[in-house]
Amino acid sequence: MSESYITPAVRAVIGASNGPLLACHPVEASEVRRFYQAVMDPAPRYWDERWAKSSRYGGLVAPPAFPTHAFRRGPTEADPLDRMEEPDFDGNTRSFRGLPPVEVPLTRLLNGGYEYEFFRYARIGEPIYRSSSYLDIYQRAGRSGPMVFVVVADTYTGEAGARLIETVTTTILR
């Protein structure tokens, strides 16, 4: 039996929640452009003002899961690049969504998967809010050793608290 990383301190953060937190700026046309160009999905709903105005959206919108990327580093937040000299720093903090950190001494991180429910697309200029919680944190044996699964639920809302998307994200520490 391998070491258990699910210590009482780790177990204690399951259920921890925060929010709604406001993204540091509203949805910008330029970040939406860079998004759809990087995905190579130039659908008119993201850039063709005339088309979008007469569509069910009533104006330009961001791609469906854009809100999950809307929480960029704010002007007063620490710069992650300051830690790049640390040999085990992979560019990510272990403080998921600003929730209490998951204190597990595993330095490799992989994206495990997502579950989504979509309600509406964010509009250009719309503020994005996020409420998050740790749904579960558990350990499984993997081929290359133990893996810890961190499961986070997020609700993203826009103007007037309108639901945009609900997500469940699994991150794997190994």
Binding site: R45, S55, R56, P64, L110, N111, G112, G113, Y114, E115, Y116, E117, F118, V168, T170
Partner: peptide
């Protein structure tokens, strides 16, 4: 299409 709606999805990496 513009008349339908992607309601739910889930996938694993």
């Amino acid at each position: 299409g513009e008349g339908g709606w992607l309601w739910r999805m889930g996938f694993q990496f």
